[in-house]
């Protein structure tokens, strides 16, 4: 791999945001993801290659380490922040159409539930895998989920719930989404949700951690 991309990938993996970022200490006073992404573009490396060879593999390694309990949420968040600093340079290419995303992922916490940390973690890991994220927030009604899918044909959707009481709202939302969009791929997650519940309500995939969702989406894109 190009040395610059290798260095960029390491910066994202370890959460080195930019030159002035003091973390991680071993990389203090070194350029971070922000500067290295700019340099890679200036060196003529395409945004697509930067994504495919540096950023996405870095976030994939982060997700895998998290699944193996080798790192914890804070390190995942630091990596996501470094990824975001790279995306400042990459996003204009998405907007111009020069670089394509792998797909669109709509996500929200179901009606009656205000928890959003898990949803945010899944969002950032899926964004790090090259997907556009449409985050509907928390306490999302079925109508709002349906409207979002209607506005983004071909999108995949993820529903989150953290309470046993709101799992019932998840069931209702999945049923109505399925009725309106029979081919829609629906992912579900959250502390009380299980693979069995996912199957029972007619969703397509359940994962106990963000990386599982990323791996599933990889098969679709």
């Amino acid at each position: 791999m190009n040395q610059l991309l290798e260095k960029l990938s390491t910066c994202v993996e370890y959460g080195k945001v930019d030159l002035k970022s003091p973390y991680p200490p071993a990389m203090k006073d070194q350029e971070g993801a922000f500067e290295l992404t700019r340099q890679a573009l200036d060196a003529g490396i395409s945004p697509g290659n930067i994504l495919e060879e540096a950023l996405i593999p870095a976030m994939s390694r982060v997700g895998q380490k998290f699944s193996r309990n080798e790192i914890f949420v804070p390190q995942m968040l630091m990596a996501a922040k470094a990824m975001s600093s790279s995306m400042i340079h990459i996003t204009p290419y998405y907007l111009s159409g020069e670089t394509k995303r792998r797909g669109t992922f709509i996500i929200g916490t179901v009606k009656g539930d205000l928890h959003d940390i898990g949803k945010n973690l899944v969002s950032m890991m899926i964004e790090g895998a090259g997907w556009e994220i449409i985050d509907l927030g928390v306490d999302v009604s079925t109508e709002k989920f349906i409207e979002a899918v209607g506005n983004h044909p071909g999108a995949v959707i993820g529903l989150s719930a953290l309470l046993t009481t709101t799992m019932e709202n998840m069931r209702r939302s999945v049923a109505e989404l399925r009725e309106k969009f029979p081919d829609l791929k629906i992912l579900v997650g959250g502390a009380p949700v299980t693979a069995e519940f996912c199957h029972k309500i007619g969703a397509d995939h359940y994962s106990p951690d963000p990386q599982g969702a990323v791996e599933y989406l990889k098969q679709l894109s």
């Binding site: 949420v73 804070p74 968040l77 630091m78 996501a80 922040k81 975001s84 940390i117 950032m124």
Partner: peptide, 8 residues
């Protein structure tokens, strides 16, 4: 965008 602080 301060994800870490938000999580903490």
């Amino acid at each position: 965008g301060d994800l870490l602080r938000g999580y903490v």
